[in-house]
Design a protein around this nucleic acid. Structure first.
Lengths: 296, 296
DNA sequence: GAGTGGCTATACATTTTTGTATGAATAAAG
DNA sequence: CTTTATTCATACAAAAATGTATAGCCACTC
């Protein structure tokens, strides 16, 4: 039963899946193309299955290979987490801590907090991963996550920060050209900046509007909140933005403040195993403190 | 940042953690003691940390090593899952499926169902893991789980089987010697067979009894339901048992059937990824069908 | 107190794995 | 059509990892 497959083979496999060719994988893994090629060949031999169709431009994964991609990535996540774990063993506050959050928070809010942490705890190395994936913590892709909902898993320590308000904003340039909407219904005639995919978040927002919100309602669509903010700043239209964020920019105007408000519950979460790590505990505490200054 | 630690090193590390010595790990992994020793030494070198204290009787793990044990086990689970995944690729019903459930179910109920599946689908290889851990499915320790509660994770497919009734039972031998209790309160004076640790399950049972249930209330304690059943069969005392199970044995008598009944919600669950695997789908379906015959 | 069985650590030969160099084939760009 | 830059596959040499054998240590047992 036990085929005793060396884990190195999976590492090479993942490299090829991610890079698309033996050569590229070899570069990424700091190995050479013949070596990776042999690893794949051996993996195919022991699993008795064809993983890739060799083409001149690289390797094309088969269905079987695609089925292995997810578990192989998980292995990689865990391996990366293990490196982090060891770096922070000891009683002093040091080591690498990996934080994940949405792109806006990561780009607009965290930098100052990170800078502060880096200043006061020079031995803590911080990593920032921007992603909205829920699974991040459980699959060890990060040590600490800042999310807009309360985590359900009991293995996670969660600390509520408070509500982040979201409102409609537009640049003054846009408003002078296109006028200022005075009711929610007016919005329908404006250039709206919104999301590409309909997420839970955007569905909740839609409920508060007097007109149906479809994909086509948005003139400009992007899933990146940062890009949305950039579009608003560029005067491209009216969009949703976190209030605390938008108010930093004097030329952005809050619209329909009385009629529309949307609040996002904000939580900082961490795997309970990490309580023992002084570095993680410190970053967790500092993040909570730093974010509490931002939330009102 | 990236230390490029070979995954083979983690495999050897896990072997040493599980076996307790380099030599034993070498045997388990099909390698040799010097090789494993070198792997551990290299892992300690690249992580720059002491993982084991060498003693004459083997290696003693340090705190750092203990912190790495969990992730290393997860890697092993995933690696094992990958071997299973590949074995069942293709359109025909074949491959290895790993099922986990509690010990009673696994020992008393599943064997006949397994025998039936094995008969009708000779190309399916079945594995059975007895454990009560909730995490089993998510950490890929098994493909299908039979559990006494509805799973909360959305990534899991769950099918409710129904209620399994639990009641008090005793062997006729015991009753002739010690008498038959006629009320729940009478139980307190009897030799009760129960659990070593207070789990949620036993706490729910306790609520239905007229006297407080402490650890000391049980004369005979074991966490294994199978062992409890064996004790009941041996006439050692009065204990809880699944009704359908106990009734197979003519010399076991149901006690206080009117006064006490406890029902366990039974679910068969599977990772949603596995829907594509004909083998997993088949076993899932057969388990549901087979268990429905057992539940009333 | 000699013997036995467990362990780790080390020296050395061997095997295995890896890297270098090269060839062949394809695709895009001049 | 040629050049250039990819890719994978193969041959051979170099390097690295492994296995064998052995020594040393400790705890038990007889």
């Amino acid at each position: 039963m036990n085929k005793d497959i060396g884990w190195e083979l999976y590492r090479s496999f993942l490299g090829v899946m991610q890079e698309g060719s033996l050569s590229a994988a070899a570069r990424a893994l700091g190995s050479t193309q013949p070596t990776i090629g042999r690893h794949i060949a051996e993996l195919e031999r022991v699993l008795n299955i064809t993983l890739f169709i060799r083409t001149q431009g690289g390797l094309t994964p088969t269905d079987a290979a695609n089925a292995l991609l997810l578990p192989a990535s998980e292995m990689a996540n865990i391996a990366a987490a293990m490196e982090r774990v060891t770096s922070r063993h000891g009683d002093d506050i040091q080591g690498t801590v990996r934080v994940t959050t949405s792109d806006v928070i990561g780009i607009e809010i965290l930098p100052t907090i990170f800078a502060d942490i880096a200043e006061r705890f020079p031995n803590i190395h911080l990593e920032l991963a921007l992603s909205d994936k829920v699974q991040d913590l459980l699959s060890r892709e990060a040590d600490i996550a800042i999310r807009m909902f309360r985590p359900k898993q009991t293995q996670l320590i969660a600390r509520r920060i408070g509500n982040i308000g979201v409102g409609f904003f537009a640049h003054t340039c846009y408003l002078t050209k296109h006028g200022t909407p005075s009711t929610l219904a007016d919005l329908e005639a404006h250039r709206l900046i919104g999301f590409d995919r309909l997420t839970d978040y955007i569905r909740s927002v839609a409920k508060k509007l007097p007109f149906p919100l479809e994909k086509d309602s948005f003139v400009l669509r992007t899933d990146s909140n940062v890009a949305q903010l950039a579009l608003i700043r560029a005067g491209a239209g009216i969009g949703l933005c976190q209030i605390g964020l938008a108010e930093r920019d004097k030329s952005l105007v809050r619209l329909l403040a009385e009629d529309f408000c949307f609040e996002m519950d904000t939580w900082v979460t961490m795997h309970e195993d990490l309580r023992k790590s002084p570095a993680c505990k410190t970053v967790f505490r500092e993040l909570v403190a730093g974010l509490q200054g931002y939330v009102y």
